[in-house]
Design a protein around this nucleic acid. Structure first.
Lengths: 228, 228
DNA sequence: GTCTATATACAGATAGAC
DNA sequence: GTCTATCTGTATATAGAC
């Protein structure tokens, strides 16, 4: 049986045939990112995947579910990586730096899919919307709790913790809107820069000394994104 | 003659009758912000404005031009306010703080229209896109040049000036995506907070002393948005 | 699994009466 | 300036042959 997007199927099936499903996903991602969900027709997706519209419907249940699947497949790895980070790093300053680096890495590595997750929530409604929002809120909750922990331990100094976490999330998510790998900036350097700015914004310090990214020793930005 | 959106007409006509034009604009803004440009039908706009679709076309030339008009009317005041700020404030730290406050004020005061300007560029193409992008780039250019000036005078300390200006813009623009006036946070307090964070991110200092928002004395965040 | 053909609804936009 | 009626194209989705 083929892997069919929607209807609770997973991204990859164990019984072969997932190449086409993957091609459909990537085609939809490219089009949604460029023209938006409502700006993209079912014919556009089919054409980009090299299928007719009827054949396309063999690989997905409908356009809405395809979007949900794309979003969940996008947010889930971020959530898992964030969980691994808070599990393995105690210091809130190092944690938030690692989370920021992971987040920026993911957004710069695949801007189209991240842009969709960032901007197309409004195309959903009802149960579909609820499901995706829950995933996103869980993820953002990790950011908030790390910042709260840092404030409690007097490592960070911000009065509005939730506000600060939103500010950091928006700043870092924005990378997906302009980053292109051809740019002169190396990906790792980009991650370091944003992590350092995040520490500055939170006025991170150990004792009296202001904390910089260079004071920490973290694994590569994509370390926690890798499956264990 | 009525003020007709598109075809180079201005937002307000001198010959009465602009009430309906305004109502059309506000209706379109509300719908575009909620469902997106492509997710909004011409019938939705007409309905929200209390008109039939035919009558709607009496007040606009077409849907694309309506979007362009909304975007230009949104960006223009920001651009003008930013110009007034750099004209009247010499210190780059005070300038960037004032620009951030103005920007956040505008985005929190009217989230829907700012969200549209932020997310619906991809709905445009050709000449229309070029025109709006030029306006936006001009505005963002002011941020960059202020940051550059601060780095030159050794008031700011960032290695990637363009990157920093993008980070600040994205962080502050994000306010439009969640702010609701019913929140417990006062609007002015919000502006101060973001301005302070921006100074922290840029590692602003006068001499050896790190600069905080409280060290500056700026007019109210909306001061420069008012017409002279 | 893939196709041709098509059902059904809705999109943006206009004609022309009043 | 506003309406009713409608044109024309395209949208999502499906039926059913191969």
């Amino acid at each position: 049986m083929a892997a069919r997007v929607g209807s609770g199927t997973r991204l990859r099936s164990a019984t072969g045939d997932e190449d086409t499903t993957q091609r459909v996903m990537r085609a939809a991602i490219a089009m949604f990112a460029e023209r938006g969900f409502h700006g993209t027709g079912i014919r556009d997706i089919a054409g980009a995947a090299g299928l007719t519209t009827s054949t396309l419907y063999h690989y997905m249940s409908n356009k809405d579910d395809l979007l949900v699947e794309i979003m969940l497949a996008t947010i889930t790895p971020l959530r898992e990586a964030a969980a691994r980070i808070v599990e393995s790093i105690e210091d809130p300053a190092a944690s938030i730096a690692a989370i920021v680096e992971m987040h920026v890495w993911a957004h710069a590595s695949d801007p189209p899919v991240m842009m969709i997750a960032d901007t197309e929530l409004r195309a959903l409604s009802g149960e579909r919307l609820k499901k995706v929002v829950k995933f996103r809120d869980d993820y953002e909750g990790v950011w908030r709790s790390v910042i709260r922990a840092g404030v409690r331990k007097q490592i960070f100094e911000v009065s509005q913790e939730e506000l600060a976490s939103r500010a950091l999330l928006q700043m870092t998510t924005g990378v997906a809107h302009w980053f292109s790998p051809s740019g002169k900036l190396r990906l790792e350097q980009l991650c370091h820069e944003y992590a350092d700015w995040s520490l500055a914004l939170l006025r991170a310090r150990h004792g009296k000394r202001q904390l910089h990214y260079a004071d920490l020793s973290l694994p590569r930005p994509d370390h926690y994104l890798q499956q264990p």
